[in-house]
């Protein structure tokens, strides 16, 4: 064992050819392989052409799935090829999960056979995305079958910022009435968003929420107001994403952003590798913490050099 390339170029060619015909089974199987492999054993070649990876995050019940469904509709009907990764939490007790994001999206999939939607369980990852999300997004990008990949995170509060490691653009979906203006200047998720969406904007307080967000967030591109269930305001979000993508492509902005994430990405994979080793060896509970850490790192290095 050790470093392994999971996909030969002919496998990629097959799944791309099948995908072009609307046969998603080979791509879906490839996603499973990536999902079930430890991230340090996954090696995905760089895509010749990038696609826009958009993270959709925000608190549970804010309407992320419904909005994602509407964005599928809006993008596809405008000629874009769309893939969706929808992440829901795994049980900390059983490891199982109920993945319910398709419920809100099904309506928008009928008659749009080019859309690929995959539900993922978070599997013990704490950042509101699954540990395999980045590699799966890169596989989708490599296939060349999509112009845009939407990643819907687990319902996220203030500190689940891992989506920013994966996405080129982070949309933070919120709703009116979730708190006063102080909430909008707190550190965390608010800071990493590239644009805000005030969903359920037909509810009282929407204008005020949008105003607070505009005042608080100097660096974001835009604050959108949507009523996802009716489709109101969704095309504006779509057009904003086109503008954002042009901005990212101009003058190497995308390249710079992705390079910036590379180190932290590698650190996350290494961390997972160390954690995996730590779980597999018996540690002496009476040793000092330093000795135990040494033991873990030695064991990890030994395995890596096998």
């Amino acid at each position: 064992m050790g470093r392994s390339t999971l996909f030969e170029s002919d496998q990629i060619e097959t799944l791309v050819a099948k995908g072009r015909q609307g046969h998603w089974a080979p791509l879906a199987r490839a996603v499973t392989v990536v999902e079930n492999s430890p991230p340090w054993e996954v090696s995905i070649p760089r895509a010749p052409r990038p696609c826009h990876i958009v993270g959709i995050t925000g608190p549970p019940g804010a309407g992320k799935s419904t909005l994602t469904g509407r964005l599928i509709e809006s993008f596809v009907d405008d000629g874009q090829r769309v893939a969706v990764l929808a992440i829901d939490p795994s049980s900390p007790l059983s490891g199982g999960a109920v993945l319910g994001d398709r419920v809100r999206m099904e309506t928008y999939l009928t008659g749009r056979p080019g859309v690929f939607v995959r539900s993922l369980a978070s599997r013990g990852s704490h950042g509101a995305v699954a540990g395999s999300t980045r590699n799966i997004a890169r596989l989708l990008e490599l296939s060349g079958l999509f112009d845009i990949v939407l990643i819907e995170t687990v319902g996220a509060g203030q500190t689940e910022v891992a989506i920013v490691e994966v996405a080129d653009t982070v949309l933070l979906v919120t709703v009116p009435g979730l708190g006063d203006a102080v909430q909008t200047i707190k550190a965390g998720l608010m800071e990493v968003a590239d644009a805000f969406i005030v969903n359920m904007a037909d509810r009282p307080g929407a204008a005020e929420t949008a105003r607070h967000l505009r005042l608080a967030a100097g660096r974001v591109d835009a604050v959108y107001k949507t009523v996802a269930i009716e489709g109101t305001g969704v095309d504006q979000v779509r057009d904003g994403m086109y503008a954002r993508w042009r901005f990212l492509l101009e003058e190497g902005q995308l390249e710079a952003r992705r390079l910036e994430k590379w180190g932290s990405d590698a650190a996350l994979v290494a961390e997972a590798w160390v954690a995996d080793t730590a779980g597999a060896i018996a540690l002496d509970p009476h040793a000092t913490m330093q000795d135990s850490v040494d033991q873990i790192l030695k064991e990890a290095s030994r395995r890596w050099n096998r």
Binding site: S90, S91, L93, S94, G95, G96, A97, V98, L99, G100, R102, V103, R104, E106, S119, A121
Partner: peptide, 12 residues
């Protein structure tokens, strides 16, 4: 099924 460790996609 969730409680027995499976990942369940519910379609609605």
């Amino acid at each position: 099924l969730r409680d027995s460790g499976m990942e369940v996609v519910y379609t609605g």
